[in-house]
Design a protein around this nucleic acid. Sequence first.
DNA 1: CTCCTTTAGGTCAGTTCGACCATAAATGAG
DNA 2: CTCATTTATGGTCGAACTGACCTAAAGGAG
Lengths: 237, 237
Amino acid sequence: MSTVRPPRSHVQVTADLVILTVRTGELHVLLIDRGNPPYLGQPALPGGFVRDGETLDQAAYREMAEETGLHEGEVVLEQLRAYSKPDRDPRGRVITVAYLALSPELPLPVAGTDAAEARWVLVEEALATELAFDHNEILRDCLEAARVRLEHTTAAAVFCREPFTVADLRHVYEAVWGQRLDPSNFRRKVTKTAGFIEPTGGRRFPDVGRPAALYTRGSATLLVPPLLRTGAEEPQH
Amino acid sequence: MSTVRPPRSHVQVTADLVILTVRTGELHVLLIDRGNPPYLGQPALPGGFVRDGETLDQAAYREMAEETGLHEGEVVLEQLRAYSKPDRDPRGRVITVAYLALSPELPLPVAGTDAAEARWVLVEEALATELAFDHNEILRDCLEAARVRLEHTTAAAVFCREPFTVADLRHVYEAVWGQRLDPSNFRRKVTKTAGFIEPTGGRRFPDVGRPAALYTRGSATLLVPPLLRTGAEEPQH
DNA sequence: CTCCTTTAGGTCAGTTCGACCATAAATGAG
DNA sequence: CTCATTTATGGTCGAACTGACCTAAAGGAG
């Protein structure tokens, strides 16, 4: 009865970036203020359109460099999933692929071409803000993915600028999970997991308290058995 | 200074399906023989183009119904990741999103519109075959994802038609992981994990050996602590 | 020197797991 | 009927890991 329409639909594809870091013990995400319509001036995740001849990974790294001044090698991006609701972008049919990055505390990013400004925002605050497109949903999903990643991999160490102390590493877990961890049990876990952290022999002398031994990231990437959140301890208010 | 070319590139997006099942104790994947160029007649994963107004999930379920006769509700599809190499499809710029499904042994799928034939193929055999596009890579990734899923979720139970025995469930793990498991320890794990399997009270009388109690799937979806592959035991040759 | 803070390390009970053994419940052969 | 075979079910034992908790070490401030 009806004419058979070509089933193919031309869409545009973007890569959006969720770049997380820990600053002053709290989890931050890198946001930009949109420099173009739609959502002009509204906060959003950095990202942009995939170009011809580019893979999604390449597009993600290019956008990261353009909009934040961070380069491949400084930060590792990992693909998470695609978001495809037909009306998620008022410009038309745009499917986005979200990328997650865990980054050490880096120099403040610089404003780029597509972005009026890039800045670190408290994750808690970003989630309470109305972000452009479906970026609130993307941020929520990436945050949960990051929490799971910390359970099963040694990824938390990339949040730390080397050399770091066991307490530095613990603060990362506490910031991402939003809960306090027992310092003693945490130490036992990370020091007895082969390849998680390697001692440098040096020490750091804080303003107060006993000096702490310094470590660098080890070669291990998987954490078996995992380091699980128990939900037992409450976040410090 | 220079004209700013629109950085946007129009691409086509497909959803490709990796539908796994266990038949006669061995892991199979659903393949089609391509009914259209390119790769005409060559085996491939089922899948197709996303249409206007459709999410990726909707496209995946629609393609599954069209090409295999399996419907939403019978099988649960889950998005895995996107594949975006610029030259992965000779027709032009096509990005695909892979979907993974674990299915109980279902009636042989019927031939559909886009596919000359859909059939179950041994995973081992499929991986040794040259599949269309980058489907070998997609299948490998999905297979590893399925193995991880069995470790951390109760997903293995959806491979079993209800009611099933503990041995049925164990055979699923053995097929997907390619290794033998200790029947006694496996039973202890699955029966003591609340909500994994629920006894029906019935029993199944095999040709030989003691009858086995029958179970249905429980309500739990996560497996904590996980059921880990140890790599200890070899697959039966 | 004494207090305070933070790191470092130890104890102890409870849980889980792998390896292994023992028993139960069915069938079929002699 | 008896026994061997097969598979299901259940128990034991020690190793490993964890959470809760405790103690000591190493620095600075007063």
